[in-house]
Design a protein around this nucleic acid. Structure first.
Length: 470
DNA sequence: TGGGGTTAT
DNA sequence: ATAACCC
């Protein structure tokens, strides 16, 4: 017994009505900055880029002799990802090492517990995209959203002036839908597909990485459509096929934004698939999940998403963690913390900013509820230590270990037995240094560090950012 | 399951 | 500080 969702076929998203200069801006003030790129409500063109099995690709670049072999990246007892050679032979993401080697005895494993190479490559990708367009939002290490509305707009007017009539889509059209080049929405998206192709090409020629792209009128649709043709291909979604894309999801948890917890709660309400969610009474949903969550996910279920592409910029936090079978003495804890701290201080040093908050997170063993349940304590970093973050950091280690051990004792009574399975240290609340000192601050993250880079963008004192006149 | 990240409450 | 989300 399925209810028919209210048939609303060809309207895709963003009810954001056209031309509403009359409506008072909610933020107050006359000059609301227009959240992402273009103002004027209109249709956006968003690209979602998703690198293929990212860690495995990075490892293939680091070890070219492994390129044509089945290769997996191992963290502890898990193969977190693997290349396509390994996938052909049946290895899956997040398989246990035992299962993976049974499935594919020739599988080669490299340890991927140190994320440094992946993090560095990840930011090279984001930076490269930033050369095309300022609106680049990271999602994890291997995905980026790019709001290409303005690029498309520019090419569209060029095209209109040159009266050129030939226009070709790059890559797939979702659902093999026919194009209508009289429809300027189609035309914009087709131009978007060409831009996406260029972005992928740049990532390939300059960084040696392949990936997928999806092009659509908002983030959730771009993301969903990018996965429809899988390795190293791209797909554009035209508005008329929006409902097929979103309803084609076999479970609500496949909708980005609906996670494990929300999916469970929705299931208890009898909501199992996207159609159920579309048709579910809003009032009931709002009482169950709260107004804002309810409205957000119900819009998502129609493929509507007005969230802007928010430039990620440099990271908000730096953390380093390690998991293990057992850690049960204070000295062990101290050793592990010191190790985490060393690599973290190195990263902070390269970043150039100063953290003002430090946090310790632990996970305690418990047979039920096996993972989950982490707890943390944080505190401000004492002001007299903060200036020391700019330089050789060996003298920071012991005061910080002392602080972290205090935080540890706030969670664990060291007189009693304990059994930890994870320790994590995080620096956050990062601030630029006061300005003076030695010129340049790394603009995007660190000064491009080892290898290639030239640009170290300087911060001159007029730099209030882009348009922050208000 | 790892080792990360972000935002909202 | 936690809980949810994302990869």
């Amino acid at each position: 017994e399925r209810r028919e969702p209210p048939q609303q076929p060809q309207e895709e998203e963003e009810e954001e009505e056209e031309e509403d200069w009359l409506r008072p801006q909610p933020g107050g003030g006359a000059a609301s900055p227009a959240p992402s790129g273009h103002r004027s409500a209109g249709r956006r063109v968003i690209a979602h880029l998703d690198l293929d099995c990212f860690y495995a690709q990075v490892e293939m670049i680091r070890h070219p002799q492994l390129r044509d072999k089945p290769l997996g990246v191992q963290q502890k007892n898990i193969v977190v990802t693997c290349n396509y050679e390994a996938r052909k032979r049946g290895v899956k993401k997040l398989m246990s090492v035992k299962d993976a080697k049974e499935t594919c005895p020739q599988l080669i494993l490299v340890n991927g517990e140190d994320l440094t190479p992946y993090r560095e490559m990840s930011y090279k990708v984001t930076e490269l995209l930033g050369e095309f367009c300022p609106l680049v939002e990271r999602l994890g290490f291997d995905e980026n959203f790019v709001d290409i509305t303005e690029i498309v707009e520019k090419r569209l007017t060029q095209l209109q002036q040159s009266g050129c009539s030939s226009l070709c889509v790059s890559g797939h059209v979702y659902n093999d839908q026919a194009l209508n080049l009289q429809d300027t929405t189609h035309v914009r998206l087709v131009i978007g597909s060409q831009v996406a192709e260029e972005l992928r090409e740049a990532i390939h020629t300059r960084l040696g990485l392949t990936g997928c792209a999806g092009v659509a009128s908002n983030k959730v649709l771009a993301k969903l459509v990018s996965g429809t043709h899988k390795p190293n291909q791209q797909t554009v979604l035209l508005p008329e096929s929006c409902q097929e894309l979103i309803r084609g999801l076999d479970h609500i948890q496949k909708v980005p934004g609906i996670g494990y917890k929300t999916a469970k709660r929705l299931e208890m309400l009898g909501v199992r698939n996207v159609c159920d969610l579309q048709a579910f009474p809003s009032a009931v949903l709002e009482k169950e999940l709260g107004v804002s969550m309810a409205q957000r996910i119900q819009r998502l279920s129609y493929g509507e998403d007005d969230s802007p592409v928010t430039p990620s910029g440099p990271p908000q936090s730096f953390s380093d963690e390690d998991s293990f079978k057992k850690c049960s003495s204070e000295v062990e804890v101290k050793e592990k913390i010191e190790e985490l701290l060393r690599s973290l201080l190195d990263r902070i040093y390269k970043d150039g900013r100063q953290p003002h908050t430090i946090r310790l997170t632990i996970r305690q063993f418990s047979s039920t509820d096996k993972w989950f349940h982490r707890e943390s304590r944080q505190c401000p970093i004492p002001p007299h230590l903060i200036p020391k973050f700019g330089k050789e950091n060996s003298n920071l280690i012991s005061p910080l270990v002392a602080i972290l051990m205090k935080l540890f004792r706030k969670m664990i009574d060291v007189e009693l037995p304990f059994h930890l399975t994870l320790l994590s240290v995080c620096f956050s609340n990062l601030k630029d240094l006061p300005s003076s000192k030695k010129g340049s601050i790394g603009f995007y993250l660190k000064q491009m560090s080892p290898g290639s880079g030239k640009r170290v963008r300087e911060v001159d004192d007029v730099s209030q950012g882009e348009g922050s006149a208000s």
